[in-house]
């Protein structure tokens, strides 16, 4: 494993740092002034409700969502000038639509080695070994020659995890890796993650709920409305945030003004149907 001599002398080198990160998608603010620092060897879970900005946060960290304001650094370099992508592994949310041409499990996992390979030329022995190791780690070595489309949803998710593992990354970013995966598969996945943690991999994990991964996590970040609402000791769920009350009075369940209803709406409005 390559270790930068300058960084090795520090106690906990910073792997990623987001400073005042603001992201807009379609004119809507999705991240608002997020500050986050992750040091080497940390296992951070990012929790939050749907639409809280947790996926956008990790996509921003990887340079996939453009920053409106603020900065992102990966291994000390600004993300738009970061070139050492072989140190980073990414497990995206599973895409259900498969491509128009069949691809084998081996081919998809081997594409995780691209950052290590020259522009042209066949895979070298260490590329093949890393691909094989990754397939064994997720228990799919016997399916290597099968088409990805013939696998079940949980197996396809494991293929994506293997693809990230094949690059032997120092930082692994996972976006809801266990969404739609049954509990037995989640168990197996937690086992894979546990071995990576032992190896010292830094892990940032977006999840809806922790499930079997809970014992591995060393720190939880909870996102709410594009801001970090909690950053500290591990939590089981984003609903467990201490001090979880809202600082604004709760909105009424119906937030439109009845005065704006058109005459046809008014004829069937609940008030007239059920006069008090």
């Amino acid at each position: 494993m390559q270790v930068n001599p300058v960084m090795a002398t520090e106690v906990d080198p910073v792997v990623l740092r987001v400073t005042d990160g603001c992201v807009e998608l379609g004119g809507r603010p999705v991240l608002r002034g997020v500050d986050l620092t992750v040091t080497a060897g940390e296992v951070v879970a990012v929790l939050g409700a749907n639409g809280s900005g947790k996926s956008t946060l990790v996509r921003t960290v990887l340079g996939l969502a453009p920053l409106r304001r603020g900065s992102v650094e990966l291994f000390g370099a600004p993300v738009d000038r970061f070139r050492d992508w072989r140190r980073v592994g990414f497990v995206p949310q599973r895409v259900t639509a498969t491509a128009g041409v069949p691809a084998s499990v081996w081919e998809v996992v081997a594409s995780g080695r691209l950052a290590h390979r020259p522009l042209v030329g066949p895979m070298r022995r260490r590329d093949r070994e890393a691909t094989r190791d990754a397939l064994e780690a997720v228990g799919l070595a016997d399916r290597a020659r099968d088409g990805v489309a013939t696998l079940s949803g949980g197996q396809q998710q494991r293929v994506l995890i293997a693809r990230a593992l094949a690059g032997r990354p120092e930082l692994l970013v996972l976006d809801e890796p266990t969404a739609g995966v049954d509990l037995a598969q989640q168990d197996a996945f937690a086992g894979i993650l546990g071995r990576l943690v032992e190896r010292g991999t830094t892990i940032v994990l977006v999840a809806h709920e922790m499930g079997p991964m809970e014992p591995l996590v060393g720190r939880t970040v909870v996102m709410r409305d594009g801001r970090i609402a909690y950053d500290g000791a591990p939590l089981e769920s984003f609903e467990d945030v201490p001090h979880a009350h809202a600082h604004h009075p709760p909105r009424p369940a119906v937030d439109y003004s009845p005065a704006l209803a058109v005459p046809l709406d008014r004829a069937t409005s609940p008030d007239e149907e059920h006069p008090s």
Binding site: L64, F90, S111, L114
Partner: peptide, 20 residues
Amino acid sequence: GLAPRLFAVAQDPEFAKVAG
């Protein structure tokens, strides 16, 4: 010659971007 890269780009553009 560029099959591995072209394959990865068409298969999963976001992953390809994170692979540099």
